[in-house]
Structure formats: C-alpha cells, structure tokens
Design a protein around this nucleic acid. Sequence first.
DNA 1: GATAGTCATGAAACGCGTTTCAAAATTTGA
DNA 2: TCAAATTTTGAAACGCGTTTCATGACTATC
Lengths: 328, 328
Amino acid sequence: MASIREVARLAGVSPSTVSRVMNKTANVDEDKKQKVLAAIEETGFRPNELARALFKQSSRIIGVIVPNLENPFYNELAKAVEEEAYRNGYKLLLCNSNNNTEKELMNIRMLDQMKADGIIILTYSDKTGQAVADCHLPVVAVDRQLTGSGQSAYVEADHYKGGKMAMAHLLDCGCKNIVFLRGPLELSSGLSRYRGYQEMCQKYELPEQCIDCLYDYEDGLRAAKELVKRYPQADGIIASNDMVAIASYKILIGAGYRVPEDVQIIGFDNIRFSWLITPEFTTVIQPIEKMGTLAVEIIIKHGQGLPFQQENILDVSLVERQTTRRKE
Amino acid sequence: MASIREVARLAGVSPSTVSRVMNKTANVDEDKKQKVLAAIEETGFRPNELARALFKQSSRIIGVIVPNLENPFYNELAKAVEEEAYRNGYKLLLCNSNNNTEKELMNIRMLDQMKADGIIILTYSDKTGQAVADCHLPVVAVDRQLTGSGQSAYVEADHYKGGKMAMAHLLDCGCKNIVFLRGPLELSSGLSRYRGYQEMCQKYELPEQCIDCLYDYEDGLRAAKELVKRYPQADGIIASNDMVAIASYKILIGAGYRVPEDVQIIGFDNIRFSWLITPEFTTVIQPIEKMGTLAVEIIIKHGQGLPFQQENILDVSLVERQTTRRKE
DNA sequence: GATAGTCATGAAACGCGTTTCAAAATTTGA
DNA sequence: TCAAATTTTGAAACGCGTTTCATGACTATC
C-alpha cells in the first residue's frame, strides 16, 4: 500500500505538501497541487487512518455500549447513533456488554485505548461511574444516570411523566384494576415511572398493585404469569416496556383474556415492533431517535470544546393503539 | 496520559523492556519485571492501541456492513458477529449502508484505511464486488454472493432447500392455493427460494402464483394487499421473510381472514420476533448465529493464513408454529 | 581458564500522516 | 531596484508501541 512518502516522491514534492493538498490545510502552488493529485490518483493512495489518528489523538470513533442486543430499543438507539455519527464523519464501534460488568469495563478501557472520541453508554453497573471517570473520554449516558462521575452528561426521557400518562390513559379507558409490571428501581426509568404511577394512585386513591419485572421478554412472561395468578381480575396492565407488553399479551391471550375487551395493555418505548405487530400496542413513546442524535451531538460539542447541556430530559407522549380502548 | 517511555523511565528500563513485559514477548529479569509492573500500576498506563495497530498494521477491528438496521435479521447477525469477535479479541465496527451504494463504498474504503482485519458484508450492489477487490482486506459476504471478486468467501443458508420446505409444509397443511411473496431475484436468497418453490410447483403440477416483494415490512404490507386483491381465495402464503410474514398477517387479519384457519402463513429467517409475538409464526430457520460466527471465523483464519472454506452453505430447517396447521 | 553459546537488554528504526519551524521563493511597497 | 513582507515549501520532529540488531552479561563446555 502506497504511503504518503511514495506519493510525495512521485509528485516531486515533500510529504508535507502532499498532506497539505489532501487536507487543504495550507495553500499549495497550483502546479504542484495537480502533480500531487495525479500521483495520488496513480498510486491509489489512501491515507492510513491509524497514523492520522495516532497523531491527532482521535480516531473519530464513537463507542456505544449496550447491555444487550435483544431488545430493539438498543438496536434502534444504535441505529440513530450510527446515522448521526456518520453524518458528522464519525464511525460507530458497537459494544455489547451483555449485562456483564467485566465486559463493560473492558469495553470502556478499550475505547479509551482506541482514542475514541466519546462513549455513549446504555449500561449500568455500580462500577461504571468510576471506570468512566478514569478514562477521560467524553461520556454520555443514555436512558441512565451515572453515579459517581459527577460531570458526565446524560439524556433520558421524562419517565415520571410517562408513568403518569400511562396510568392516566388506562383510567381514561375505564380500567378499575390496574397492575403495574414495574421495571427495576435501580434504573431511573424504572424508578421515575413508578413514581409517576404512584402519584396517580394517590391522587385517585387507588391501591398500588405492582409486580417487579425486568425489561426483557422472558421476565415479562414470568411476571405476566404471576399477574394472572395474583390479580386475575386485572383489567389494565402497565408493562415495564414494550417487550414486556408483548410478553404479557401472549400470556393473557393464552389465559383466555381478550385484549382490549377484558384487559388493556400499555407499554413504554414505542419500539418499531410495537406497531408492526398485530394488534398494534398502545405505548408511551420515548423519542429514541432524538436521544441517539442528541447523545452524539453532545459528544461532538464536547470534543470541540463547545458548551452543552449536561442534563437532558426529553418529553414523552402517548400513542393510543389497539391494546387499549378509550371509554366513550 | 502516560506513555511507554515514561513507564520505562520510572522503572529504570528501556521502553523495549516494558513492551516485553506487557506482551510477554521475551524473558525479562524478574526484578525488572516487577519494577515495570509497579510503574505501570503507578502511572495507570494503558498502551495506545492506535500506535500498536499502526505498527502491526492491524487494528483488530472487524467491520460489518449491513443494508439497514430495521430488519432484526441484521441486528441478530450483528449480535452474533460481535460476540464471536469479542471472544477472539476483536471489536466490531458497525456500518449501516442504508441501501446506499455510495455509503457502502465509503464504508469499505474507511475500513480499509482503518486497517480493519476484515469485512463482513451483508449489502449488495453491483459496485460492491469491485470495491471489495480494490481493498485487499479479507471479506466475507453473508447471505449474499459477491460477483466480480472471484476470491471472496461467502456464507449463506440453503435457500433452495428452504423454498422447497416452505412449499412442502404448506402442502402438508392442506393448502390448495398457495401464493409466494417472492423476494428479489437479484439476491441469491430470493432466487434460490423461488427455484425451490418452482420445483415443487412443477412436481405437484401446481400453477406458480408469485407476487414480487422486497424484504421489508412496508413492502410486505403492499404485497399482501395486492395478494388479497389478486388471490382472494389464497389459503397459503409463503412470505419472502418473517417481516413480510408479519406484515401479511396484519393485512390478512384486517381483511377478515383467520390465520391459520382460512389462510396459513410461513416466513423465512426465524428472527426472534417470529416467535415472541402472538401468534407465533411458522418459519424456515436460517442459522443466523452460526452464520455470524462462521463469518468471523473465516476472517480470523484468513488473517492467520490458515485455510478456510470459501463457499459455505448452511442447512436450514423448519419450525411449525401457530400460523400453519398440519392436516390430520 | 578460555572459548563458545545463551540470554537479557537497550538504542534505534519502523509504521505513517501531521505539524512546526526555518529557509527559500515570491510578491508588495517604496 | 532593493528592502520588507508574505507565501510556499521541505526537513525534521512528533505521536507511541514494537521489533530488530548488536552489545554486554552470564553460563556451560572442554
């Protein structure tokens, strides 16, 4: 593979000049410029990005660390990040921590060593904050708040409002017996939604009916089975997210309930599949794309030394689809 | 950030020695070794991967180029690749070509310049073959065969068999009026499945009933609507893939058909959602995980100069689920 | 005890694009 | 036309881990 020095020799100039032509970083005599261009063309020269990155101390890579790739939420986020990154000349290094703290830490370290320009992190463990602080890369947490690393930015949806909306909607739909498949309280999404739900319960003097449930399909299945057992007269379910909503639907249908006639279901996230499938699921929309875009923006701004918002709480909204039905 | 030379100074040795300690690439006096280790510990030194990669001419990055991130098939493939890559100490650079030839070519070039250790490519355009040949990186095409680059490996499922199986299954289920939502014939998956279907039609002297259909949900919706119009008496649908099967289901249900009583549906791929949702979809399984793993294996072998299979056609199988029902 | 063979070790070169700095060339102004 | 100012250009240094090669140290063999 041709190097810049060969191109320079061929064009009869110095490597510096070739570099200047390539990057338009300084004026170059038109005549030499043409010679350089011709030499580049002839040799098919493509600058070695590693050498460039080594010098610049920046690889124009943005790392994304997701806890899993089963939940489309993360895929959709990754997609949004990839697109925004690409638009800005960055590449995306995708790391799947697989809910494994060890792997997560290795990924953070690796990205540091690769001189990534930033990390977008969607995982959470108690060691994350420290690891993030140790590497001096710009980090933005999405759908999470990192503790122990005071300075890092985060972007998440207004889960509190989301929780309230979900509950309000089911009440609007005439549900009298609502069960909340509550997400993990260690995560701000789980906690805030619960708070929203709780507030509504208090306001309407309703008893809290929760079943703890992780964000994945399998646990959704489990929780929904428990729901059928513990609250057979439930007529409304707030699932911890869309995957769990989908799992609940399966269990409920299997148990002979009709949706939405007997029991109504609402999820969170608005993953693509929530409306691709039949029936289409009512859900509280997280602006996934905006979240990804914003995260990239923050990293870029950080890299350029521009100011940026440290706390970003994006608005949520609700789409009514076929798993709920508003009372006349 | 500490460099190897600082560590060396602190330990009172040369950078070479530090390097040797880190990489265990040569014996080092126990005493010095300890000093080096201590110095590394003290400085928190982490070798700069870029410098390392620059010298080695290998970044231990595997690039994956997918045509989109809407279809879970690609996500699942990416996941499999990430995991196998990680197991072998490689990282995954995810590129979404977005069905855009230009972007695809840029991605190939970029990976070349990054000294990626290989490219796993899931896109296809007529320029791909040439671009791949130009960069001298190991490339393996997955679910595609690249033309114009005679030497590159590929791995795909036995689509021909898959097509036959799908048809055979619907016949077993008593379908008399089967319509094939045929995938793009430019892709080997589309063509081979069609050939399989065709062969079965001939064997049983059935008329071919095809509607062309891309692999995405939206086009599935369109094709299914056309199906309802053109073949209202259809009682079996072979969808071009699971996304299209899911789209067809929605249209069919919307048009008042019952599945599987009135019309049975089978898809291809066995994406995770095909069985998460309700009803669970019958489909022809592509061994997605194995495909990803194998692709990575090939790249690694290639990198090590080991021999590898150039053409890899993996077996398919069929899962009967709730969208088809075998006749007694 | 001397020669040969091993092993540990560091200096220097390498990979390669970018940038600095000073020299050379060209333009401007008088 | 000459000095001054400006622009163009190249040599060398830089970023930094790895590897080669030669040297010095040490052990083993006779």
